[in-house]
């Protein structure tokens, strides 16, 4: 019981202080789980991050489920996840209440209007990071032309064309690109061998 309470409190702090998306949460989780409570070794934690990045879903939910399951079974997973989302849930609910109460005032519109270009830029920046990672297997600063991935480039082009021209669904695009890409890679391996 003590362990569950400790897990809950640790992840409550993670949820409360991770401002600015999933990657901000990783050092916090590491601090709580590895340094403060010593519930995991650094090696286990590195594995955890790899797995959390490979699977769908927000990284902090992934890691709280993973830590919870490994330390205290399925019930631990639920406790950690609840701890992680409790504070954000309440804060967002309050923000949503005020947003919908005041959003139609012209002054508020004026201020929110200035936030929209920034949000578009942030989404664009996330997209650019993933695109560069897909095409060059590295971050922007480490681009090498020799690493250019032709298969990903063609896939990206075809997906974008289909999305814009035929408005196919986003989920079909993501899953389809995964399936088609894997088959192409496997065929390439076979031919080269």
């Amino acid at each position: 019981m003590d362990k569950l309470l400790q897990l809950f409190l640790s992840f409550f702090q993670v949820g409360l202080f991770s401002v600015g998306g999933g990657y901000a949460a990783i050092p916090l989780i590491q601090d709580q789980i590895v340094n403060v409570t010593g519930m995991m070794t650094l090696e286990e934690f590195t594995d955890l991050i790899t797995i959390a990045e490979m699977t769908p879903g927000p990284i902090s939910i992934n890691s709280s489920t993973f830590v919870g399951t490994r330390l205290a079974g399925p019930f631990g997973a639920i406790v950690c996840t609840l701890g992680c989302i409790l504070a954000p849930f309440i804060i967002c609910l309050v923000m949503a209440y005020f947003y919908y109460k005041y959003r139609n005032f012209s002054g508020v519109q004026n201020v929110l209007g200035a936030l929209r270009p920034a949000t578009v830029a942030l989404i664009g920046s996330a997209g650019a990071s993933i695109l560069v990672l897909a095409l060059f297997q590295s971050k922007w600063a480490g681009i090498q032309l020799a690493n250019f991935q032709w298969i990903e480039f063609v896939l990206f082009g075809v997906c974008l064309f289909l999305l814009r021209k035929y408005k196919i669904s986003a989920i079909a695009t993501i899953l389809g690109s995964g399936a088609v890409g894997t088959v192409v890679y496997l065929l390439k391996d076979m031919v080269l061998r």
Partner: peptide, 27 residues
């Protein structure tokens, strides 16, 4: 899961699709 070759390839190529979706929305 972590060492599976096929999962690694699928996750790598899927990024192209994800990038296309974000690009479409951002445009």
């Amino acid at each position: 899961f972590r060492t599976n070759h096929y999962i690694a390839i699928a996750l790598k190529v899927m990024r192209a699709g994800v990038a296309a979706v974000i690009c479409d929305v951002v445009i």
